[in-house]
């Protein structure tokens, strides 16, 4: 019996690791390539172990391509849109969670439905509006767009976290003499801090990886890493090692954010339909 169990566990360990490594392999290969020289990157058969590991690519990407500019844009756009989104969404989620009306349910569903509109449906007018208001290729314009894209998810996630706070807790605070602001500051925020943090992370991830509007509404000034990496698609840009280095830097922080927030990801992506 125990032998059989051990055998089973070994089998699962083997297949489990195999499948996971298979899924991870492209990412591994990218990181691996980023340490090769351009020559090694192209060599056939590929060099697995016996190449001269080099950090050179990372340096070159930084120096030659203004990488810092693009990554700065990514940071500004994703964090900016997230902060702005939270600022607008927190009061809305509070109101709907603690002072629901007959219409709250419908409002929430409507807010979600806006997330389901395909971006191509509004590409043309938005492009024209941006052009006329001189917002094309500006950070402010793109920040607004990314905020609007994530706003439904932010409102929704915050709402579900706020709704889980037991009402008596807030009533206890009221009896303890707290006013509305103190209730929020001393009771609500500390209790839902984890939820607010994961909402924040998820929104940053989505904004960082957004690749429809960032490709269509930017050229260079406001272009984030998605657009920068896309520029490697031109045939002249076929420097795999440098592409890999740039890509690795572009995905590394967000990959770590993702690992931290995978639990909440389920809630955020399915709007509570899967628990």
């Amino acid at each position: 019996m125990t032998n059989n169990k051990n055998y089973q566990k070994t089998l699962f360990t083997f297949t489990g690791w195999f499948v996971s490594l298979l899924l991870f392999f492209p990412i591994f290969w990218m990181i691996h390539t980023s340490f090769k020289t351009e020559l090694d990157a192209f060599s056939m058969p590929p060099s697995f172990f016996f190449f001269d590991a080099t950090l050179e690519n990372y340096g070159i990407v930084q120096e030659r391509s203004n990488y810092f500019h693009f990554s700065m844009n990514s940071v500004i756009l994703s964090f900016g849109s997230t902060f702005l989104g939270l600022l607008i969404a927190i009061p809305a989620a509070l109101a709907m969670a603690f002072r629901p009306s007959k219409r709250t349910r419908g409002t929430l569903l409507w807010i979600l439905s806006t997330k389901m509109m395909p971006p191509v449906g509004v590409l043309v007018p938005l492009y024209l509006i941006f052009r006329d208001f001189k917002l094309l290729d500006t950070r402010i314009g793109l920040t607004l767009v990314l905020m609007m894209i994530n706003l439904p998810i932010i409102v929704w996630m915050l709402y579900t976290y706020f709704k889980e706070v037991p009402h008596p807790l807030l009533e206890a605070a009221r009896l303890d003499g707290a006013n509305l602001w103190q209730e929020i500051r001393h009771v609500l925020v500390p209790i839902t801090f984890g939820g607010i943090a994961s909402t924040f992370l998820l929104s940053v991830i989505f904004a960082w990886n957004e690749a429809f509007w960032t490709l269509n509404l930017t050229a260079s000034d406001a272009a984030p890493l998605t657009a920068f990496i896309a520029s490697y698609s031109s045939p002249e840009g076929l420097f795999w090692a440098k592409l890999s280095a740039a890509s690795t830097m572009a995905v590394a922080p967000i990959l770590m954010f993702g690992w931290f927030s995978q639990r909440q990801l389920v809630q955020g992506m399915t709007f509570g339909a899967v628990k």
């Binding site: 492209p26 998605t226 990496i229 698609s233």
Partner: peptide
């Protein structure tokens, strides 16, 4: 099984890769 938590982290990773990176990664490498 052994190391299950770590395999989950590895397996979920592709979802967090930005689309332009994963596209070029597949196309080229």
């Amino acid at each position: 099984f052994w190391g299950r938590g770590l395999t989950r982290v590895l397996a979920i990773s592709p979802f967090f890769i930005m689309p332009t990176v994963s596209a070029l990664l597949w196309k080229n490498m």
